[in-house]
Amino acid sequence: MDEDKRIVVDNLTSRYPGTTQPQLRGINAEVQAGQVVGIIGNSHSGKSTLCRVLAGVISKIVSAEVEGQWRLFGRRVDDWPAYNAMTGVVLQNPAGQLSGLSDTVADEIAFDLINQGLAENLIQKRIEKVAAQMGLSAQLHLHPESLSGGQIQRLAIATAIATHPTVLILDDPTSEMDPLGRRQFFHWLAGVKDTTVLIVTSEIDDLCEIADSVWVMHDGQLVSKGTPGDVFNHLATDWQIPAPTITQLAQKMNWRMADGQYPVNAAELKEVRYAHN
C-alpha cells in the first residue's frame, strides 16, 4: 500500500525519563487519509502520550526514550519543520497554548499564520473563516484572557486549523466546553474534509456519531481498534469504558442489528427500529 496516504505507527514504545514503566507499549496502528479516529481510555492509559508522540512533542521538544517508528503520510519526525507544518495540535490545558503575547483573539489566530509567512490579506481571510467555524466571530477583538474556558478551547482549535494542517491531533479538546459548544464542535468535526483527525475524548456518544474508527488504550497498550460498532460491542470490563447511551439502551431493550450487534449511534438505532417495526 502507498505509505504516503496513511499514518503508520509501527511497534511504538515510549518512556519518560525518571519513570520505570513505559507510558506506551508496542503500539501498532494505521489511519487512512481523511479518517476521523477517536482515541479513548481511562486516565493514565497513554492517550495523551500517544498524541504527544504523534505531534512530535516527544521527542522533539520533551525528551523521552522512544522505540519503534511512525510516519505521517510518509514523513518522519526527524524532518521536523515539514513534519510540524503538517500537523495542527491542541493539547490538554488550552490556556497554556496561547502565545501569551496577543492583545486580541484575532492576533492569537494570526500568530501561526505570521510564523508561516503568509500574506496579510490571506491571513485576514483565514482568521475570519476559522473564527466563524469555531463560533468566535463576535470575540475577535476581545483579549484572549477575557474568554471562558470553553472559548479558549475553541480558540486553541481555531489556531490549529488556521494553517490547514493535513493531520489534526486533538487531546480532549472539549473538556471545558458547555453542552451546546460541544455539540457545535462535533457537528463541525463531522463536516471536516481532507483532514485526518485523531481525537482523544471522553464524549463517547458524540464520538460514535462521527468517528470512522475508535482506538481503545489501556495501560499503555492499544487493546482494541475498529469501527465504533465493533469496538463498543466488544468492550472488556477492565478497560473501564462505558458503552454509548444508545448502546446501553439497545442492550436493555435487546434491539440488535442484522449482524447481531447493538447500535452505537443514532443512524444505527434508526436502522434497528425500522427493522423491528
Binding site: 519518560y16 525519563p17 525518571g18 522533539k60 521538544i61 520533551v62 525528551s63
Partner: peptide, 12 residues
C-alpha cells in the same frame, strides 16, 4: 516534579 526539572535543564 522531575519532568519539570528535566524539561528546563534539557539542552534542546
Amino acid at each position: 516534579p522531575q519532568r519539570m526539572v528535566h524539561f528546563f535543564r534539557d539542552d534542546k
